[in-house]
Write a protein that binds this DNA or RNA. Structure first.
Lengths: 362, 362
DNA sequence: AAAGTTCTTGCAAAGCTGTTCATTTTTTGT
DNA sequence: ACAAAAAATGAACAGCTTTGCAAGAACTTT
């Protein structure tokens, strides 16, 4: 039997055997004291807990996971923290997971276009309970491997078609279509578009939906420049558009960051007015969009609801592995602020044009 | 001996025993094939690797950690993703860690003032290799427990005095002192201050340093309102200051977010000009500070360097446990943009007043 | 009250999966 | 063919949970 080395201080943290020895019980008893739903005499429990406290013992979660063949670690894969709507997403995701006793293991890729395959493999090696992918793609092959390994895969913010994976996602197409409508309705029809990285699912929806609806309404897109979702690219693209099309009267940017860049180019470089000369609409409704300096009209992305849905799935005993419904689509709604000429709103849309105090937190 | 159940598909992922059986070798050999620096005949290695591929086997990292008594997981504790300089920090931290084969386990607290003790305990239970704490406090008692457990603790962005923990931190005091100087030098002396949450180390330095230097220069602080580091609180505080002190000519906000709020209040609610009527200075130099709509004069926080230092520490075999130097202080430098009247700069400070194109990424 | 039945609790041992170390087996060199 | 080197093995270990079993406590039944 293992002798207890009291003097071996700090070498390694106390194990259940140490506690058992000190409390004069077996290791199984110690284990029971630390798992609820088990019966152990109050007397004994006290003794064990006291011993544990003395030795600074807490069960080794690694060993527990190994033994129980179940993990409470969820891999969260992402590539881009700079994306200004990541903070809200991470905030909601980590808080929600913590409430469910899940711990996120953060795996970061280098680029949104990069395949997450390597990261998924890593997550699998850690035998995580589930994998949440957020601004990355994955190969069909890897998605299937996850499924074979019985590890549920949830794509947050993109739809993975024809795969066994679950998707929780904004219906970017419908939001983009709505942007086309308000431009037309407010009488701006010399429209330029600034899109994001090609290859991203999000971008193709935001771009495609807009073009499609504009076409249906009988208008052409005046110009289109591809950016990379960054402020800077929006800034540059707007300058280019204005140079190419002097009579441009509206810009649709596929995310808010590019819209901000475009606005600053319009106002501070070219000295034009928004929306009087050029209207601007973004996409995402990040907190900054409500700030006084921008007050951007944009499509609100219901991040909180989407994350809530994700958490609900993770909460299931099967972590969503046996889900019948594969795709959860959320509709974004228009938030009208001061970068467009006012239009009549539909139900569910919000109007902050007259409420400058309603600036969201930081 | 364990029979191999080939038909037991997907029940659990393949273990080294399965691979061993298929390749006709022992588990020890399989193990050696997956650890470099070991000798195994090329022939055999091929066979094992082939078997592994067939079964989709990858070593269970949890089991490996348990056995080797060493982890490559580092707990990252934080409380506030909304903090606009968190993205840059997380970005640098996760990238740097990944390059060192370390994986961050993300533990989020609920409030910056909250003690991280519970989270640290959780991290300890996962037997992580190290703990990085970023916008949270911890009790003396808990810090010592970490040390007893031989788990290094690094405070990023606050100094933990009189503890065995390491701190990597901005010298907020010197930055704050510099702000006082440029106000005085540019002739603005009716100054209001908007501070952040009391109890945060950062805030007390940013507040204290400013007051101290202002006092040394023979000026009084006209007014002081406490915010909570959010845009909204800055907005509100600025309105209050302007109402209380009509002749106010400068506002120092203890972080950029509050400075933005203050600027918008000054410009869009009160219709005053920045810096002509009121100068504004922030702290952090978050990306938005360079954007055209704000162009905020602020103290740049060398996040990249600080994170780099943190990574260097984590890279050490002892993860920084036996570090002689306990505190790594970094000086922030002034970035002069358009919210202050120009002053002569010192060495190391940057002047972006004449370079509107130099807007940082998103 | 005595005997039978059920509940509680503690114990020993097995299992999860990968690594390591002392050994045995195989290969290589001369 | 013999010593030395190389390769592969078996057993032990890391730290926890779980299960089958046995003993004692509590409760029923006649």
């Amino acid at each position: 039997m293992s002798e207890m080395d009291v003097n071996d201080k700090g070498r390694r943290s106390a194990s259940s055997a140490d506690v058992a020895a000190l409390a004069g019980v077996s290791r199984a008893t110690v284990s029971r004291c630390f798992t609820d739903g088990t019966s152990v005499k109050g007397d004994t429990r006290q003794r064990v807990l006291a011993a544990a406290r003395t030795l600074g013992y807490e069960p080794n979660l690694l060993a527990r996971m190994l033994n129980k063949q179940e993990s409470n670690i969820v891999a969260v894969l992402t590539s881009d923290f700079a994306n200004p709507f990541q903070p809200a997403l991470m905030e909601a995701l980590t808080s929600g997971m913590r409430a469910e006793q899940l711990t996120p293991l953060l795996l970061k890729g280098t680029s949104p276009m990069e395949s997450a395959d390597e990261l998924i493999q890593l997550a699998l090696s850690y035998r995580v309970a589930a994998i949440v992918v957020t601004v990355l793609n994955a190969s069909q092959r890897m998605i299937e491997r996850c499924f074979e390994a019985h590890v549920p895969l949830i794509f947050l913010n993109r739809v993975a078609e024809d795969t066994p994976a679950t998707s929780v996602c904004l219906n970017s197409r419908s939001g983009a279509r709505r942007v086309a409508e308000i431009f037309v309705e407010s009488g701006t029809t010399r429209i330029g578009m600034i899109s994001g990285n090609t290859g991203s699912w999000t971008n193709s929806m935001r771009r495609g939906g807009f073009r499609e609806r504009l076409d249906e309404l009988g208008h052409d897109l005046l110009g289109h420049i591809q950016g990379d979702f960054s402020y800077q690219s929006g800034h540059k693209a707007a300058l280019q558009l204005m140079a190419d099309f002097p009579r441009l009267d509206a810009i649709y940017a596929c995310n808010d960051a590019m819209a901000f860049g475009a606005m600053d180019a319009i106002r501070f470089v070219r000295g034009a007015r928004v929306p009087d000369d050029i209207s601007v609409v973004g996409f995402d409704d990040v907190p900054v969009a409500a700030w006084g300096a921008y007050r951007l009209t944009t499509i609100h992305q219901p991040v909180a609801q989407m994350v809530e849905q994700t958490i609900q799935i993770l909460k299931r005993p099967d972590r969503g592995l046996g889900l019948s419904e594969q795709v959860f689509l959320y509709d974004g709604h228009l938030v009208q602020r001061d970068t467009t000429r006012p239009v009549t709103l539909r139900e569910g849309e919000s109007d902050e044009t007259t409420d400058p105090a309603k600036t969201d937190a930081r």
